[in-house]
Write a protein that binds this DNA or RNA. Structure first.
Length: 775
DNA sequence: TGCACCGATGTTTTT
DNA sequence: CATCGGTGCA
């Protein structure tokens, strides 16, 4: 026990030692709150609290896993495994699997991801004959989502004149009808969307006192991390569960609340003291993570926010280097700056790639960074964005698995019913949907009974449907007798998905096949892994739930040491020695969508605070003068957040003033500069300028804007392919070594014909192929 | 019914 | 620039 408390400072120790009652830990960035949570749980267990009686809600499943492991080393692994730990969504999905039948849901209900929800909403809008330009499916989805997160059910909506009026004013008087149809359809499909996992849990606890009592008794001690980012729905769940024992510990930092856009309510933490009796408040204000420069710079930024709790974050760490502010001409150059800085720092200071992180506001920004890192041959990993599980081929395989697990899953079914093509077209599907409404059955049930119902479908199509149903049923039989891996493999083979891809033979097709193989491997690993988990069976349903709720951070990582790239949102809770925050520009960060109200802007500022405080040793802020956005080069100006940092913490490599002397050539008065031209030309340093107006890259050279002290070598332009010619030896990460036989096409369409040692001649689009030139 | 092409349209962040 | 839905042809 003593050992457990060692290494905690007084402030950290106090909340660990308070065993009972309601408490709140206001924890500044880098103050060791994860440590406190971990130790508190370990301490509870050492005091004799049964692991089964502890519920710990974390922000990512990865965080939960890591905490479990750490607790395991203190109290023993077998005990630690019994802890209920995970995100709100995953913990309550598990509970809903057990208790959902009270609400009429099957235990194997499907979890719809955002795309499923949006497709369904889209279909509903169309079926209702509404104008899709007025009822935009994304807007409708986010509105429905916010209803759910505020616990406004369809019934509550219709009883709320204000809401209905607001929608009527927005020219969407049928909003409620769409909402109703959407909820009905999800229910009929045996599906819950992300918001349902919380909303339905609330419904369950509210409507079934015996269920509430069961879980109240079970969860005698509740801990919630990142409480500042809980929404109303989550708040109520916690409140209901904690009501009996009131042993609740919430941890959070109001300065790091960055999820208002998905309903997070900062008042949950600001008003916490009113919600429970005799709340003890602890503050962790000493930052162990970052240098003085970073901590104080971050403080100086967050000062600009009006809404916040009193808290002073300080550190006893060294001053450290100042924050480097760097300006680039374009996003391409920004990428090159970041890549070469990483390259040099890594060399000079003997650092690993994993010591660096590149953080950005929007996923789209990863592109330029990726290109630059790849050229420098710096290994990187992108978190978020288009995740593996969102790729089409993966979603297709998963859709089959979903449907065989839950045949009523409408969105899954629509995805695969005619893919690969089997002659079941749009009209047939429409008629099935109509019949399913008419008979109040799911589409699959309609198909099963197609012979016995009246439907306008000809016999040959009926036969095709019959075959499809039989195929799914045969998969179900496999699933009953074999594990998830075997089932998935059979699906991939028998549906013809793999054949479909094999026959197209393009590099993209091959990549897709490999992705599917990777998915199968993933399933196998999962099945293996589940054997060690207490109450798991390794079933397909478990796998699908895991996939649906996995954060990108949860992904298994390989052992290659890499630079991390992710949005700032995803970086919350993480730390890196060297952090680049790129795209520090008005309209991008703060986002143009979030500058309209004070509260939105303050959230952006908190986001910046989060970004800065990820850095342990050195932070870099970069911005550009112009950047490609929606395909066009547009002007940019430095983010106000840079100015908000007390200047004494900054090392401004490119003085802001010089920005004003920007020559006007930059924004092309003749028309927009064409990106393809930038890519096309092959300016080896010193080559004669191409005819016509100077390109951005040439301008860059002409103007010699590069700051003193930057040791960035004058890299060649984007064009790696410039050196590629017949006879070149190249390496491809998938196909291995090969020899270029010829080049054809220009610009975006340029292809190289390559003979690979592994056999086979392939034509690769240079735009996609990641070729390394060997000689 | 299936497929290829076209233009319109939208881009913040995520479970 | 990327995705989506619609259109027109086989």
């Amino acid at each position: 026990m003593e050992a457990l408390l060692e290494g905690l400072n007084d402030a950290q120790r106090a909340p660990v030692l308070q065993k009972d009652g309601a408490m709140m830990v206001i924890a500044g960035a880098g103050s060791g709150k994860t440590r406190v949570l971990t130790m508190r749980i370990a301490y509870l267990m050492q005091q004799g609290v049964d692991a089964f009686n502890i519920l710990s809600l974390t922000f990512t499943n990865k965080a939960a896993r890591e905490m479990k492991t750490r607790i395991g080393t203190i109290v023993g692994n077998s005990e630690a495994k019994n802890l209920w730990m995970g995100t709100f969504h995953s913990v309550f999905a598990k509970i809903l699997r057990i208790e959902g039948h009270h609400l009429g849901f099957p235990p194997n209900f499907t979890i719809y991801d955002s795309q499923d929800s949006q497709r369904l909403i889209s279909a509903i809008i169309k079926e209702m004959g509404l104008d899709k330009d007025i009822y935009k499916y994304k807007q409708v989805h986010s509105r429905i989502s916010s209803f759910k997160n505020s616990l406004i059910t369809v019934k509550a909506y219709y009883q709320n004149p204000e809401l209905m009026e607001a929608d009527a004013m927005a020219k969407k008087p049928r909003m409620g009808d769409i909402y109703k149809e959407y909820v009905d359809r999800c229910f009929k499909a045996g599906a819950m969307d992300f918001d349902d996992l919380l909303l339905r849990t609330n419904e369950l606890l509210a409507r079934f006192p015996e269920v509430l009592a069961k879980y109240q008794k079970r969860f005698q001690y509740i801990l919630v991390d990142e409480y500042q980012d809980t929404n109303h729905s989550q708040y109520l769940i916690v409140k209901a569960l904690a009501d009996r024992y009131q042993n609740i510990c919430v941890v959070g930092d109001d300065s790091q609340s960055i999820y208002a856009f998905r309903g997070a309510n900062i008042n949950n933490i600001l008003n916490y003291q009113k919600d429970y009796e005799d709340v003890k408040v602890y503050r962790l204000e000493q930052n162990y993570r970052s240098t003085k420069n970073i901590v104080e710079a971050a403080n100086s930024v967050i000062e600009h926010n009006k809404t916040k709790l009193d808290k002073i974050v300080w550190t006893a760490n060294d001053n450290g280097p100042k924050i480097i502010v760097h300006r680039s001409l374009t996003d391409g150059e920004e990428g090159r700056y970041v890549a070469s800085t990483i390259f040099e720092e890594k060399m000079n200071k003997q650092l690993k790639p994993s010591d660096f992180a590149i953080l950005y506001r929007t996923n789209a920004q990863s592109r330029a960074m990726e290109d630059a890192l790849r050229k420098r041959e710096i290994p990187y990993r992108i978190f978020g964005g288009l995740s593996f599980y969102q790729r089409k081929e993966i979603k297709d395989v998963l859709a089959y698995l979903r449907v065989l697990t839950n045949p009523n899953d409408e969105e899954g079914l629509k995805r695969i019913i005619n893919f690969p093509a089997r002659g079941i077209g749009a009209t047939t599907i429409d008629r099935l949907v109509i019949a399913s409404k008419q008979y109040n059955k799911s589409i699959f049930e309609v198909m099963e009974n197609i012979q016995h119902i009246e439907i306008q479908i000809n016999n040959s199509t009926k036969n095709k449907l019959y075959n499809f149903v039989n195929m799914i049923k045969s998969f179900q039989i496999t699933a009953e007798n074999a594990d998830a891996f075997v089932t998935a493999e059979e699906v991939a083979r028998k549906t013809g998905l793999l054949q479909e891809l094999k026959k197209d033979g393009t590099p993209e097709g091959i990549a897709r096949i490999e992705n599917i193989e990777e998915l199968l491997n993933g399933i196998r690993d999962f099945v293996e892994g589940q054997k060690e988990v207490a109450d798991a069976t390794g079933s397909l349903a478990e796998f699908l739930e895991d996939v649906a709720l996995a954060t990108d951070l949860d992904k298994e990582v390989d052992d290659v040491d890499r630079v991390s790239m992710m949005t700032i949102h995803l970086a919350k809770g993480l730390e890196f020695p060297y952090v680049f925050v790129v795209g520090m520009e008005e309209d991008l960060f703060p986002s143009g969508m979030s500058m309209n109200t004070r509260s939105e802007l303050e959230e952006e500022r908190r986001l910046f605070y989060v970004a800065l405080t990820r850095a342990e040793h050195q932070a870099y802020l970069t911005y550009t003068e112009s950047r490609y956005r929606w395909g066009k080069l547009i002007d940019a100006e430095p983010s106000r957040f840079i100015e908000e940092i007390d200047e004494s913490f900054l090392d401004i490599q490119t003085p802001m003033e010089s920005y004003r002397y920007k020559p006007l050539v930059d924004t092309d008065i003749f028309g927009e500069p064409d990106k393809s031209k930038l890519r096309l030309k092959k300016p080896i340093a010193g080559s004669a300028p191409t005819v016509g107006k100077p390109s951005a890259d040439q301008l860059q050279k002409l103007r010699k804007l590069r700051p003193q002290g930057s040791s960035t070598p004058p890299l060649q332009t984007d064009d790696l392919n410039g050196n590629l010619k017949a006879g070149s030896r190249v390496e491809h990460n998938r196909f291995g070594h090969g020899e270029v036989l010829g080049i054809e096409g220009i610009g975006q369409d340029q292809k190289a014909e390559i003979r690979f040692q592994t056999g086979g001649i392939k034509k690769l689009l240079l735009r996609f192929a990641k070729l390394k030139i060997l000689e």
